[in-house]
Design a protein around this nucleic acid. Structure first.
Length: 858
RNA sequence: GCUCCCGUAGCCCAAUCGGCAGAGGCAGGCGACUUAAACUCGCCUCAGUCUGGGUUCGAAUCCCAGCGGGAGCACCA
């Protein structure tokens, strides 16, 4: 009998089986398409939620699961809030891995890439993020990269895209050039090889023209972008203010300009240094004696073989060569020697500096190494107006007079005096503070035409050409007669030639150059024989504007429709890894500003809000096959199901924190989901039940969650929402088992709210619950239920009574209690009276209705 | 070396404005159900917030110093 009863009950309630639920709902969603955005006539307000699109590596891993999970929570949340949510997905499908696989295994990079996309897409479908798949795009499709080329031509017209010769970063492993941003601590950002320099002619985007705006507009992003990313971008752009100062050079007609942030120390300049690898150094050396020329040449050779990584080591002894040439200090006419030294960089400022060893540590190190004079021009012990002077104390704690201060001679201490102070030994600047002296000396220089206020950036122009196959061909034709000729827009796209028959192995020049049929063309201008530019674009060009292509990825008339951009863009919520803090995000900001200037966009920042998810670690370190700590996404998915994985990752902690898979329990998440799901099957009331008749205690918990969840979601506190859902499910369980029972209206209400909110984290379970509760799919489109304000106020609150900050009593009072009434109750409390004892009351702080603190005299 | 972030139960994490340190989970313990086990359900244990100062009626929260961990930058004139 008992057995029979059990099976009857099981048949009615069922058992939670994630595989069954997944298989049940996937086809339904495919049919219903609840995540299609921008339906004609849809009047809902719009939100654009975007995940950084993936490189198609073939499989999803835990990092994807986490990142796309967070993006999906946001997308689902805004849908419940009544928004028409655009949540697209696509593939960043150009790039080296495809090419390297082709070289290694002889497969076609295109086939390799698209096979990977197929596989990864199948994984995605299992995980069920609420993507609008109808907008899927591939950057390696001609339909996409055509518009990359269009963008290039627009930039070319503006003079923003240009070609120049220069020393560029070179990765000897990938056999290609790298942008500055792709060199991390002297290593290739992709493969980790040590980067070297090569003299090459390459294509650049003039991002430095936008440096000021890229920096200043970061202020708008503060608060909605992670502080870390904003700081990193600020540092990367690296604006510094100072002056350009011109020095006459003996035996040279033209003056040399140097940039300095400390023009106030101009009287302390005792020598000049030029970058050995600059044209300037070569020219100066030419005018010197043969021995000097030889020594310079030897030095230059030794500098050239140095990799960046050597140059980066900070406490390396200073090296250099005296060029036996002299410059003239514009303010005091002093003759100072000119040296070539590698601590001065050729591509920053003017590739030359005035050296002030007393007040700059690097210059001081150099001066001490080569016994050059050191002259102090700022007395850093002197008090400065407007600044409270810090007067040093002697060993007895008595303030020291300036004349008693220890001698601080940088030449002997080896420590440069970089602080503020009063100018000395500086003619008209004597007595001024640092900032006043800077202002004054710039005035003097400007009057005499020998200098001016100036600013400089660490940011360099973006090198965008690559000598590799699998990328967007640069739409330029080189004609012997006409020079650089842009491919006419009507002839776009310039399609990539077939890989078949091409040697893709890295040679330092583009494989496209060998595709004779492709590379040889008639000049669009004169019709003569000409050659296509055979370089391809950095894939960061592809991703710098893809967010706009999603608006209508099939538009073959234009890259995007400005009216669509007006409707949807900028992106309301962008989600992705912090590894793109500089690269991708800086480039996308830059291109957005360019498109704004060209009149295609009405906004200047692409991503209004940014969420950087942390990493998924295993046993404290990054997962990798070689470490043997790899947790496979596919096997976890098979073991626990998509929903349990999503809940586990969302619950693990704040999204921006790194999480350790070893600390997590997908089994625990699955148990929670099963608990929630079972409740939906136990509800016996019908959907038209009167909510108000429900148990008030349970309703209060439900409505508090309804009220709090939006704030939590918008602050990305997804882990807290999951915890609150668990609390609600526990309370509902209790209401069924030992409270008003499964038929109570509050139980149904709690179950429905659980399903609605659970949809953010566990869409399959939520959808199934929704059905069990008697509704049609999809729960994803259910509007957020409004919290009843009446249920948010407590009937009574616990007021705590403190004496000298220590809790002595608790009182149950009305939330509307008057402060003096509460104080009277507190003073009457026996525990409080006992605690105060004989002491006299000094003050009573009342914060009705929560707290009374009685402070006594001590 | 410089800058920024973080230190709360055995572990992962909560804690609107400075106002009861605990919401949730993991692990652990006890119990109910079971012939038994699993599942499920119920109950329980556990910290005074890294250390030392300071401000305050009151500090996990604000300030200073130190210790520990993480990140970024690192010859940028």
């Amino acid at each position: 009998m008992a057995h029979e009863h059990d099976s009857a009950e099981t048949a009615e309630r069922g058992t939670y089986d994630f595989a069954e639920i997944q298989a049940k709902w996937l086809p339904v969603w495919d049919e219903l398409q609840p995540f299609r955005a921008g339906a004609p006539g849809d009047t809902r307000p719009r939100k654009y939620i975007l995940d950084m699109f993936p490189y198609p590596s073939g499989d999803l891993h835990m990092g994807h699961a986490e990142a796309f999970g967070f993006g999906d929570i946001a997308a689902r949340y805004w849908r419940h809030q009544g928004f028409d949510v655009l949540h697209p997905i696509g593939w960043d499908s150009f790039g080296l891995p495809a090419e390297n696989a082709a070289i290694k295994r002889g497969v076609d990079p295109r086939e390799w890439t698209y096979a990977n996309i197929d596989q990864q897409k199948r994984s995605f479908k299992q995980y069920a993020p609420s993507f609008d798949w109808s907008r899927e795009l591939h950057t390696s499709d001609p339909e996409y990269y055509k518009w990359n080329q269009w963008l290039f031509l627009k930039l070319y017209e503006q003079g923003i895209a240009y070609r120049k010769a220069g020393l560029v970063n070179w990765c000897p492993n990938d056999q290609t050039v790298l942008a500055n941003e792709q060199v991390v601590n002297g290593h290739c950002e992709r493969c980790g090889f040590v980067v070297t320099k090569r003299a090459l002619t390459q294509w650049y985007f003039r991002v430095t023209d936008y440096a000021d705006r890229l920096l200043d507009d970061l202020n708008q992003l503060e608060g909605s972008w992670p502080t870390k990313v904003v700081t990193m971008q600020r540092n990367w752009i690296g604006r510094s203010a100072g002056a350009d100062v011109e020095f006459e050079i003996e035996g040279r007609d033209e003056r040399i300009s140097v940039f300095t942030t400390r023009p106030d120390t101009l009287y302390g300049a005792t020598f000049m240094v030029v970058a050995p690898d600059s044209d300037l150094a070569a020219e100066l050396a030419e005018g010197a004696s043969p021995e000097v020329q030889q020594r310079f040449q030897d030095y230059l050779d030794s500098v050239r073989v140095e990799s960046d990584i050597d140059r980066l080591s900070t406490d390396r002894p200073k090296t250099g060569v005296f060029l036996e040439r002299y410059a003239v200090n514009p303010v005091n006419g002093e003759r100072i020697p000119i040296w070539a030294a590698d601590y001065v960089l050729a591509d920053y400022g003017h590739g030359a500096i005035m050296a002030v060893p007393a007040h700059d540590q690097r210059d001081l190190d150099f001066a001490r190494a080569f016994e050059l004079p050191v002259r102090v021009v700022v007395d850093t012990n002197a008090p400065v107006t407007g600044v409270i002077p810090v007067i040093p104390l002697d060993e007895n704690g008595v303030p020291m007079l300036p004349e008693d201060l220890p001698a601080v001679d940088p030449a002997s201490t080896g420590i440069a005096l970089t602080g503020d102070g009063r100018l000395i030994n500086s003619g008209p600047l004597n007595g001024l503070s640092k900032s006043n002296a800077i202002r004054r000396v710039i005035e003097l220089l400007e009057q005499r035409g020998l200098g001016r206020a100036a600013k400089n950036f660490r940011l360099r122009d973006w090198l965008i050409s690559r000598q590799r196959y699998w990328g967007t061909p640069i739409p330029i034709i080189h004609c012997p007669d006409c020079g650089e000729v842009p491919v006419p827009e009507s002839e776009l796209p310039v399609r990539l030639p077939d890989a078949a028959g091409l040697d893709l192995s890295p040679k330092g020049s583009s494989p496209l150059g060998a595709a004779e049929d492709w590379v040889n063309v008639a000049c669009p201008n004169c019709g003569g024989a000409a050659r296509r530019d055979s370089d391809t674009m950095d894939t960061f060009v592809d991703s710098s504007w893809y967010y706009l292509r999603y608006l209508n990825p099939n538009d073959d008339e234009r890259a995007f429709e400005p009216a669509d951009a007006e409707k949807w863009a900028p992106v309301d919520q962008y989600v992705g890894g912090v590894e793109h803090a500089i690269l991708h995000l800086l480039y996308a900001r830059f291109i957005t500003k360019v498109l704004f200037d060209l009149g295609y966009l009405s906004f200047t920042e692409p991503f209004t809000s940014l969420l950087n998810q942390g990493m998924v670690l295993m046993d404290g370190s990054k997962m990798s096959k070689s470490k043997g700590n790899l947790v496979e996404f596919a096997s976890e998915l098979g073991a626990h199901g998509a929903d349990a994985l999503r809940v586990t990752l969302a619950f693990a902690g704040p999204p921006e924190d790194d999480i350790d898979w070893a600390d997590l329990s997908p089994t625990g998440s699955a148990k929670f989901l099963a608990r929630a799901w079972r409740i939906a099957g136990e509800v016996t009331s019908s959907p038209d039940v009167e909510w108000k008749s429900g148990d008030p205690a349970l309703r209060r918990i439900t409505h508090r969650l309804l009220a709090d969840a939006p704030g939590l979601a918008e602050a990305f506190k997804f882990n807290v929402i999951v915890a609150r859902l668990m609390e609600l499910v526990n309370a509902t369980r209790k209401a069924i088992d030992s409270g008003p029972g499964a038929g109570d209206a509050a139980v149904r209400e709690a179950a429905e709210v659980t399903a609605m909110i659970l949809d953010l984290f566990a869409p399959f379970t939520a959808e199934d619950m929704w059905e069990r509760l008697g509704y049609e799919p999809s729960v994803a489109l259910v509007p957020w239920r409004r919290a009843d304000p009446a249920l948010l106020v407590e009937e009574s609150v616990t007021a705590i009574v403190q004496v000298d900050g220590k809790v002595r009593d608790r009182l149950e009072v009305s939330p509307k209690i008057a402060p003096d009434e509460l104080e009277a109750l507190a003073r009457a409390s026996e525990a409080v009276v006992r605690s105060i004892g004989e002491r006299e009351i000094a003050a009573v702080i009342v914060r009705a209705p929560r707290l009374v603190n009685i402070a006594t005299k001590r």
